[in-house]
Amino acid sequence: VLKALERTRQLDIPDEKTMPVLMKLLEEAGGNWSYIKLDNYTALVDAIYSVED
């Protein structure tokens, strides 16, 4: 979780936006981090930006 938060902080995305999206992605992935961690957490960042749209 810390590495995911560090990555999104680099992009000026607050933890308050990151955590709900991260928890949803983890739930959808059955707790499997490998998809979320791919390409420096690209799936997480993309999911956060899609929620903002």
Rank of each mutant, 00 (worst) to 15 (best):
L44A: 01
A4Q: 03
T18A: 15
K17Q: 10
V45G: 01
E28G: 08
G31N: 10
D39Q: 09
N32W: 05
A29R: 09
L22D: 00
V51I: 14
S34V: 10
Q10S: 13
G30N: 13
M19H: 05
M19D: 00
L2E: 15
E28R: 10
L38H: 13
Q10P: 02
E6T: 09
I48G: 02
V45H: 02
E28L: 11
M23R: 09
A43L: 14
L2P: 08
I48C: 01
D46W: 10
S50I: 10
T42C: 08
T8M: 13
L11V: 03
A4I: 05
W33T: 00
S50T: 11
R7N: 03
Y41C: 03
V45P: 01
D12K: 14
I48Y: 03
I13V: 06
E28M: 13
L5N: 02
S34Q: 13
E6L: 10
G30P: 03
V1S: 04
R9D: 02
L26S: 00
W33P: 00
L11K: 04
A4G: 03
L22G: 00
T8W: 06
I13Q: 02
D53N: 14
T8C: 14
N40A: 06
D53Y: 14
Y35R: 10
L2V: 11
R7P: 03
N32Y: 06
V51P: 07
R9A: 04
R9W: 04
K37G: 11
E28S: 10
G30H: 12
I36H: 00
Q10T: 08
R7Y: 12
V21K: 04
P20K: 12
T42M: 13
L11W: 06
Q10D: 09
P14T: 06
N32H: 07
M23T: 07
M19E: 02
L25S: 01
D12S: 14
D53W: 12
M19T: 05
D39L: 07
E6C: 11
A43T: 09
V1M: 12
W33V: 00
P20A: 11
K17W: 09
N32S: 11
L44G: 00
Y49V: 09
D12V: 05
L22A: 02
S34F: 14
L26H: 00
S50Q: 13
Y35S: 13
K17G: 02
D46T: 14
L38C: 07
M23W: 10
G31Q: 08
R9Q: 05
E28W: 09
M19N: 02
